[in-house]
Amino acid sequence: MSEPTATEPVNTGQIKQLLDQHKTKMKMALRVCAHCSLCAQSCFLFNTREQDPIYMPSHKFINSIGRLYKKKGNVDRQALEEISEIAWKRCVLCTRCYCPLGIDIPEMITLARTICRSQNVVNDFSAE
């Protein structure tokens, strides 16, 4: 596990490159999402966390990979840490969520994890 890297500058070029690799699919998922919230109850974390909207699958991918995409990768470490909080602590990638419009939500969250990991921002489970 990497050490905390609070002082390292973020390599936005690398993030952009990763985003570009998956751009079409990501763009499509973000565009197709009708913000209907029908995916909410398919996530066990949403159900067990008093139905807090921040555990809703769409909320998670919109605020992780969606945020990275919107900012075109121009994010700082603080933002990446917030995103990693979503991608690891609010999702275990169990792939049980479903979207009636067929959006592959776990894949979007996986992408957010990949990007965080590329900048050494990972969840430190030992700190729990």
Binding site: H35, C36, S37, A40, Q51, P53, I54, M56, S58, H59, I62
Partner: peptide
Amino acid sequence: FLPRVRAITT
């Protein structure tokens, strides 16, 4: 009125 929908409404 539904918090979960409001949370992602733009």
